[in-house]
């Protein structure tokens, strides 16, 4: 397994966000995490990319409460649960965060360069930039534009492009379709399928379950911080309880 999460627990003070989950993602897979709001999907992604630990450090230093983080996370054969967030991307695990969050005051191309921050060889960064532009031609057209002025769909493309600039082995994408029109959603999903076709392993968090299930190899259903079901899209859709209660379909 490329990524293995083993008995992960995350607690903010008394609120249990993740209650002992274990999951894995294999090379080349497109795996989704679905479930109702507040199920702990985003927190899972934040935990594996080191952001929960980073937040814990801030809370401790500002004496504003504590976060409990337990469990093992293994990536590419190495434990990463005690690696600081800014070093995790070095190992090939990157998160394209919720709400896209481009650096709004920076131009499109500066955002992409920021994504390749760790690459010391300028020529290689440049090659990656061209690849991203090939994938998202709209970014090339707008490369000198301030990214805060992009439309939602373009910002999502930029966020994915920026994450790709680090040339990840595993790309985590958090709710890419939120707030987009149906047409743009489809475009985002098409791009994700295209990435999968390029052999990039993807862990996807999404609300748009019916579309996602058609794309993925496997899925995990989360509810109240627990994995309550897993399997292929078809298998999960056959289970009436899961379909009606947790997926709202």
């Amino acid at each position: 397994m490329l990524l293995e999460i083993d008995h992960l627990v995350v607690r903010y003070e008394k609120a249990v966000l993740i209650n002992d989950i274990s999951l894995g993602v294999d090379k080349g897979e497109l795996v989704s995490l679905v479930g109702p709001n507040g199920a702990g999907k985003s927190t899972t992604l934040r935990a594996i990319t080191g952001l929960v630990a980073w937040e814990r450090e801030i809370k401790r230093r500002s004496t504003q409460g504590d976060i409990l983080l337990e469990g093992r996370v293994t990536f590419d054969g190495e434990r990463i649960d005690d690696v600081p967030a800014h070093e995790i991307v070095k190992r090939g695990l990157v998160l394209c965060p919720e709400r896209r969050r481009p650096f709004r005051e920076l131009t499109v191309s500066e955002n992409l360069w920021a994504g390749a921050y760790l690459e010391k060889d300028k020529r290689r960064s440049k090659e990656r930039l061209e690849k991203v532009y090939d994938l998202f031609p709209v970014l090339k057209d707008r490369s000198r534009q301030i990214s805060g002025t992009l439309s939602g769909g373009e910002q999502q493309m930029l966020a994915i492009g920026r994450a790709l600039m680090s040339e990840p082995k595993l790309l985590c994408i958090d709710e890419p379709s939120t707030g987009l029109s149906p047409l743009l959603r489809q475009e985002v999903f098409d791009k994700i399928m295209q990435l999968k076709g390029m052999g990039i392993t993807i862990l996807l968090v999404e609300q748009e379950v019916s579309t996602v299930f058609k794309m993925t190899t496997r899925n995990y259903v989360l509810s109240s911080g627990k994995i309550i079901a897993q399997g292929s899209g078809e298998e999960l859709m056959e289970n009436e309880v899961i379909r009606k209660t947790y997926l709202g379909l």
Binding site: T49, R101, R104, S166
Partner: peptide, 10 residues
Amino acid sequence: EDREVANLMG
């Protein structure tokens, strides 16, 4: 602009 995302970029 965004400490958290900057962290993610390494």
